[in-house]
Structures are given as C-alpha cells and as structure tokens.
C-alpha cells in the first residue's frame, strides 16, 4: 500500500523542503521505495537541496502536460537506490499544473513507490492546494513563532476541507513537525514551548527538530541532513519522525538544552551578540 504525504506549512522558510528531503531519505534508507515531488513550480529548490540540480532534464510540468513520460522525469538519487526525485518546473505559467494531471501522476507513482512525499510551496495558492489535494497524511511543518503557527492553523483548516479525502467524507491524518526549536530559549520563556504550540494547533506531534547548524551544512553540500550527518540531533529527529510515519512507536525525546561551557559562557555569548 502506497502512502501520499504532503509536507506543508503555509508560511515560507520554515523548513518544508529540508524536511521533505530529510524524511524522504530516511524512509528510503529504511528500505522503503520513496519518491519526493517538488510542487513549487517556478521556484524549485528540492533538486538543489538534494544535490541533483545538474541532472534535471524533464520535470513535473512536462509529465503533467504529456511532454515527457514519468520515468524520464524521475531522477534517481546517487546515494540511495530506492530514492527518487520529481523536480518542479521553472516556468512562470501559473496554470501549468492541473488537478487532473497531478492526480494522474500520483496514481502512476503509487504503482511503483511505497511513499510519495509532496513538498508543498508556501502560500495557499494552486501549487499548495495541489500538493495536498491527493494526500493521505500531512506533515505540518511549524516554527515556534507566531506567524508560522497562525499560518499552520490556516493550512490545517484547508487540509480538513480542500483535500480529496476531506471531500469524499474521509480525513487526512495531520501531524506536527516542530522545526527550528531552541530548547534553551524555550526554557527561558522566550520561545513558545512544544506544549504551547501543540495546545494551539491541536494535532498530534510527529517530531521536534531543534535549530541546528548541521541543517545548513547539509544543504550547502546538497545532501539531506539524515544522510550527511546521521548522528546529528536534527538528523536523528527526522529519522524518528520518518519511523513514526511508518507506524513505529518511538517515545518522543525532548531536545536537550546544551549547557554552555565556562569558556563559551565567558566569551561565546558576547561574541555572538
């Protein structure tokens, strides 16, 4: 049985693409046949984050419009055999994607993949609505910050009303992925806590990814963080989130607050400020 997961948020810059790449790589490494689709037509970036930017020949729009066959457009990951990428197009045409065409592509992908991860663009326009349209499950990526939480709330409302499942009397399973979390600031009361965000959005928690320099390092190199530095806290959080998606029960680890050493307490803070 294949599973269509949309990674969405409403707000931009919260980590949808990073999370899509990291989770897809984790799923693939766990032996699942996984494809990740970039729905950000006009501003594609998943190819760059996954290090495949020079291998794009055909894209999602070409396949939807019938100019290329699906296998021609799929880019197989060089590190993992069972991971593939379907890049977005760089066209400026807003109507390049059609619901019927996207539905057809997803149905075809369902035949040969276990997981279809849809990386949604920001906003609530066509790209975002089509990315969630055929989803079975949604990963709502949220930062512990007011504008991100508000936009996530809006997206949750759309997942409950504008998806195929919702319209046919079913339900898209929604889970929260809290990213860029800073345990130290939350402990000081300067950042909303995990419980604060959970209480407001009222959906189950898939994982907590703490703010980490490893994420930028990995994207600099074009490698999902779960492959580049699997032992980093962020990669472990994504790995566990992927395993929870697969149905495993893993106790949630609260990100630990790093205790600054004496030297960094004396010099580090001041240098950073």
């Amino acid at each position: 049985m294949s599973n269509v997961v949309v990674v969405t948020s409403g707000k931009g810059g919260v980590g949808k693409t990073t999370s899509s790449a990291a989770i897809a790589a984790s799923l693939a490494r766990a032996g699942q046949k996984t494809v990740v689709i970039d729905f950000d037509v006009g501003l594609r970036n998943l190819d760059l984050v996954m290090g495949a930017e020079r291998r794009v020949v055909f894209d999602l729009v070409n396949v939807v419009q019938g100019d290329a066959k699906l296998p021609q457009a799929l880019i197989r990951d060089k590190r993992l055999d069972n991971l593939a990428l379907l890049p977005a197009s760089q066209t400026r045409d807003k109507d390049a994607l059609t619901e019927e065409g996207v539905g057809r592509v997803i149905e075809e992908l369902r035949e040969s993949f276990d997981w279809i991860v849809c990386d949604s663009p920001a906003g609530i326009e066509k790209g975002a609505t089509l990315a969630m349209r055929f989803a079975d499950t949604a990963v709502v990526v949220t930062n512990p910050e007011v504008s991100s939480v508000r936009d996530s709330d809006r997206i949750i409302g759309m997942l409950d009303s504008k998806t195929r499942r919702a319209e046919t009397g079913g339900k898209v399973e929604k889970q929260l992925l809290l990213t860029r979390f800073d345990p130290a600031r939350a402990a000081r009361g300067d950042m909303m806590s995990v419980d604060d965000v959970l209480e407001i959005l009222a959906i189950p928690l898939l994982g907590i990814v703490q703010e980490s320099p490893d994420v930028l390092t990995a994207s600099n190199l074009g490698c999902p963080v779960t492959l580049h530095n699997p032992d980093s806290p962020a990669a472990r959080a994504y790995d566990e989130a992927a395993r929870r998606l697969m149905g495993e029960t893993i106790p949630l680890r609260m990100p630990r607050q790093e205790k600054p050493g004496l030297l960094s307490r004396l010099f580090g803070k001041r240098a950073a400020a």
Partner: peptide
C-alpha cells in the same frame, strides 16, 4: 517572558479566525 504573550495573542486571534473561516 515573551512566550506566554505569543501564546495568548495566538489563542485570541485563532479563536476569531476559526469562527470566521
């Protein structure tokens, strides 16, 4: 602390927006 302020502002705003949507 600023986090409680953020939480309260969101709770008020979202209660309003959800009723409106």
């Amino acid at each position: 602390q600023t986090a409680p302020v953020a939480r309260e502002r969101l709770q008020v705003l979202l209660a309003h927006e959800r009723a409106l949507s």
